[in-house]
Design a protein around this nucleic acid. Structure first.
Length: 880
RNA sequence: GGGCGCGUAGCUCAGCGGGAGAGCACUCGCCUUACAAGCGAGGGGUCGCAGGUUCGAAACCUGCCGCGCCCA
């Protein structure tokens, strides 16, 4: 039975029959943190590897998208750490200006207060208090997932250092003329009462109405926003439009207002849309604003910041959505409505924070002139300094940076970085840097607005490392190695980090690689949404199946740039895989597998041992390549099949008789099994860190070394490197042949309905010719075949492959019909193969133009199929 | 309207010029001393449609149909 263990090795711990992740995960994570295993040091001589976390929102909690993204980042970081890099994964959060302010304002509303009751200072204090008490829930949830982030370096965009970074770059941009203040049409949220940038507006196709209004006998305009006609200051037609050319320069009475407005000619007008005449409302539409600029038209604001009509008259005081039908009704009364289309589906912009329909609004705001910055951001990718993975996503990136509009950065909020600009009594404007004193005295005041949250997020890759100070961290860890984020964020955040990173860091890019992933979806590829009820909570999965199973499920779906569907069933499958690893290790420990000392010389190993070692090298090399290419799904697939098929289904099964027999061969196998599991657990650790650590420690017996020391965790084990010398094609061929024989016999047994436990006498012929004669006893033990006794009488003969045939004595209980069906199926397959191969080989064009190796392969295939057909026919004939 | 992407087994997806694959689901047989969260065997696809290029197309090109995303 069990061989004696080495005297200096601790007795193998016993593992339960099923893996229970909950307790293990909590314990391991605490140990990792206590041992400081996530810490990175700027003093290290090791090469740096850096990832900054895409900062989650301080108000947020962990959703499946985070879990997915974090799994990928953690896998990259853990692997590099094992490879000997000084690996830093830096955590933190952003202050989410609008979301956080909304949240605290809602709290206040519950107390019957508004932020104005408190005043700015008290309100901001209150937000900080909220953050201290209930902000950042996600940080605790990241621990459950196993994120190996350096907690000592946690950053927040409103921290003192990061705020200093914000002020520094604002001043620099201002002094370089890249920040300016101007009156423009911006996206305005009448509920949040702030400006929004283009990317904070989400367009949806909504049901609206298209109303055609007769301004005069000759002038009819169509609009989806009738209420804005109160602010019309012109009607525009295309200057080449023969129908209306003669009207250009004339005036028309604007209904309901008593005003007269001019008709102008503008290239922007599409003559084929509607009547080819458009109303022009410069203060309430971005296109109209531009027309207004070109024709020097006045801009008439007819709504306040809440969307209430301010134009004097009967509609004053009405909300914009009440004003619309009221104005249409009034026009109809005058017989001016000539056509109406309802519903009229058109794109409507909504505030990404509160869904309120945004109102284009003319207002004085701060902007970043993005043209020069965006050009540099595009060039960094164009000239290869920054690589986008997968590469074809670069198209989307260029489409964005090459057509970027100026960025509205001021927000009418209190929570955020206040714009460092002071206005003087005589119209002075002074931008104040971080170490400068703001101007004081009568009449001076600071701009009341704050900056867009993305403004500070754009500095994240270097502000978190200490910029603008020149810190050791910055020297060691910038540029960061890889940015992992969703393709949906390419425009939002990535392009902005590129612009600011290149600008602030003297042209040095914020990251070398941008690795883009897709969106997590439900099992039918649908977007997860609360209203749809298909949201899966990662914490629920962690609770039920474990963090490793959750991570494996997500990583296994991570094809570069593709969306990831997930479902409960797939997570169960991952849980099962973890349990499989658990039980394989359990088996190994129960049978004395160990990892001490060197592997025996290949000459002292069995073919099967050399085979699994050879496969291990191949898998190691593949996994390495796949990791380098951010092919997480392939990494998982490769390791899943190696672990389950090669190691568990074949190697362990083949090892059982060897271990049972004992002796030198058994000891070699225990050593090989230990080695293979050791390396398999290392390779899997980046994706499933908990179970691999638990098992690796049990397998290697290094727990005694204690937390905090070298070793003691697979986290600090070295990353396996493929050893070409251990590749063994001969062993791989032999085991493949052996597997084919075993599978063929199992197929026969299954088709014949033979019980697994039932032993059958058999004669195996041709093993020597196939070069697998030494494995006869292994084959017999796997498929329960006894030696042929003197009274052996073959009742069936299997043609396996090549020279190998198996004669079985099923004691006359052969199911002839089943056997004939099986053989006929094989015959059909062989015939099809022969037909296909002959068709090619009979084609002179194929022989003439196809490369020689391809032709040879087809010839071999034909020969093999013909031999198979021969034996199958013989067997069929023997059946009678 | 402009741009990008996707249609391969029941579901979700790999494969992207030389034998149609995986996971799950399904069928049959098994509590075989690591694991029933398991083991063994099996069924299942004119690779969206139509042309073209090629000795050879699921893959490359063109058109069409259907779906999705981004931008206007």
């Amino acid at each position: 039975m069990t061989e004696t263990l080495d005297a200096n090795r601790a007795p193998a711990p016993t593992l339960s029959a099923q893996y229970q992740p909950g307790e293990v995960e909590r314990r391991r994570y605490e140990e990792w943190v206590a041992a400081g295993r996530f810490r990175a040091s700027a003093d290290s001589d090791k090469p740096p590897f850096t990832i900054v976390i895409p900062p989650p929102n301080v108000t947020g909690s962990l959703h499946m998208g985070h879990a997915f993204e974090h799994t990928l980042m953690d896998a990259l970081t853990r692997r590099r750490r094992m490879q000997g890099y000084e690996a830093l994964w830096l955590p933190g959060m952003d202050h989410a200006g609008i979301a956080t302010q909304n949240l605290v304002e809602r709290q206040l509303a519950g107390e019957g207060l508004s932020r104005h009751d408190l005043g700015r200072e008290k309100f901001v204090e209150r937000v900080w208090r909220w953050k201290a008490e209930s902000g950042g829930k996600i940080l605790g949830q990241m621990r459950r997932l196993g994120d190996s982030v350096d907690w000592d370096r946690e950053r927040f965009t409103m921290d003192e250092g990061l705020s200093r970074a914000v002020q520094t770059i604002f001043k620099k941009l201002y002094d370089d003329g890249l920040i300016y203040r101007a009156e423009r049409i911006i996206n305005w949220c009448p509920r949040c009462l702030t400006a929004l940038s283009d990317i904070e507006v989400e367009h949806t196709d909504d049901d609206g109405e298209l109303v055609s209004i007769r301004y005069s006998d000759e002038v009819v305009v169509a609009t989806t926003r009738a209420e804005t006609m109160l602010g019309d200051t012109a009607v525009a037609v295309h200057p080449d439009d023969e129908r209306y050319k003669h009207l250009i320069g004339t005036l028309v009475d604007l209904p309901l207002t008593g005003r007269q407005i001019p008709i102008v000619g503008d290239e922007h007008v599409d003559p084929s849309f509607g009547t080819g005449m458009v109303k022009v409302t410069p203060a309430h539409d971005p296109n109209d604003f531009e027309i207004g600029q070109r024709h020097d038209l006045p801009s008439l604001t007819i709504m306040d910041e809440r969307g209430v009509i301010t134009a004097p008259g009967p509609f004053e005081g009405l909300d914009r959505f009440e004003a619309r039908p009221a104005i249409v009704a009034a026009l109809r009364e005058q017989g001016r409505i000539v056509a109406e289309k309802r519903p009229y589906v058109h794109a409507v912009g909504h505030c990404s924070r509160c869904r309120t329909t945004v109102e284009p609004r003319l207002s004085l705001q701060w902007f970043v002139n993005t043209a020069p910055l965006a050009r540099a951001a595009g060039d960094a990718v164009r000239d290869g300094r920054v690589k986008i993975e997968p590469a074809d996503m670069a198209k989307r990136y260029f489409a964005w940076v090459d057509n970027m509009h100026d960025w509205c950065i001021s927000r009418q909020l209190w929570w955020g970085h206040r714009i460092p600009v002071w206005y003087g009594p005589d119209g002075e404007v002074v931008c104040v840097g971080p170490d400068e004193d703001p101007p004081s005295g009568q009449g001076w005041h600071q701009d009341v607005d704050v900056l867009d949250t993305w403004f500070s997020s754009a500095l994240w890759p270097f502000s978190t490392l200490g910029w603008p100070e020149s810190t050791p961290d910055l020297a060691k860890f910038y540029p960061t190695s890889v940015l992992v984020t969703g393709y949906d964020i390419l425009f939002f955040w990535v392009a902005r980090m590129m612009m600011f990173g290149l600008y602030a860091m003297d042209g040095r890019q914020p990251f070398d690689v941008i690795a883009l992933h897709g969106m997590v979806r439900d099992q039918h590829g649908k977007k997860m949404s609360k209203s749809f009820g298909n949201v899966v909570d990662p914490l629920d999965w962690i609770e039920r199946y474990g963090a490793d199973a959750t991570r494996f499920t997500l990583a296994r779906g991570a094809n570069p740039g593709q969306d990831v569907p997930v479902s409960d069933e797939w997570c169960q499958g991952s849980r099962n895989f973890c349990n499989k690893l658990w039980n394989a290790t359990r088996f190994a420990l129960m049978n004395g597998a160990h990892v001490s000392g060197d592997l025996p010389e290949p000459s002292r190993l069995s073919t099967v041992d050399r085979w699994i070692l050879s496969r291990l090298q191949q898998v190691t090399a593949e996994v390495d390549e796949q990791f380098e290419a951010y092919e997480f799904a392939k990494v998982c697939d490769t390791l899943y099949h190696f672990a389950w098929d090669d190691v568990c289904d074949w190697y362990v099964e083949l090892a059982k008789p060897v271990l049972a027999a004992g002796g030198e061969r058994a000891e070699a196998t225990r050593r090989v099994l230990g080695h293979v599991l050791d390396h398999l657990l290392r390779l899997l650790h980046p994706v499933v860190p908990f179970v691999t650590d638990e098992l690796w420690i049990a397998l290697t017996g290094t727990e005694a070394a204690g937390a905090g020391s070298e070793g003691g965790s697979v986290m600090t084990a070295t990353w396996p490197v493929a050893v070409p010398a251990l590749r063994d094609e001969q062993a791989e061929r032999e085991v493949t042949d052996l597997q084919r024989v075993v599978t063929e016999i199992r197929r026969f047994r299954s088709d014949q309905g033979l019980r697994p436990a039932q032993r059958v006498a058999a004669r195996l012929d041709g093993l020597a010719e196939a070069g697998i004669a030494p494995h006869e006893s292994l084959i017999r033990s796997l498929v329960r075949l006894d030696e042929a006794a003197p009274d052996f009488r073959a009742s069936a003969t299997l043609a396996v492959s090549g020279a190998v045939t198996v004669a079985l004595d099923t004691r006359g209980s052969i199911d002839v019909a089943a056997e004939r069906a099986r053989l006929e199926k094989d015959r059909t397959a062989a015939e099809k193969e022969i037909t296909q191969a002959r068709a090619k080989l009979d084609n002179p064009a194929f022989l003439g133009k196809a490369p020689a190796p391809v032709v040879d392969k087809i010839r071999d295939r034909l020969a093999a199929a013909e031999a198979d057909l021969e034996r199958i026919s013989t067997a069929l004939a023997a059946l009678g």
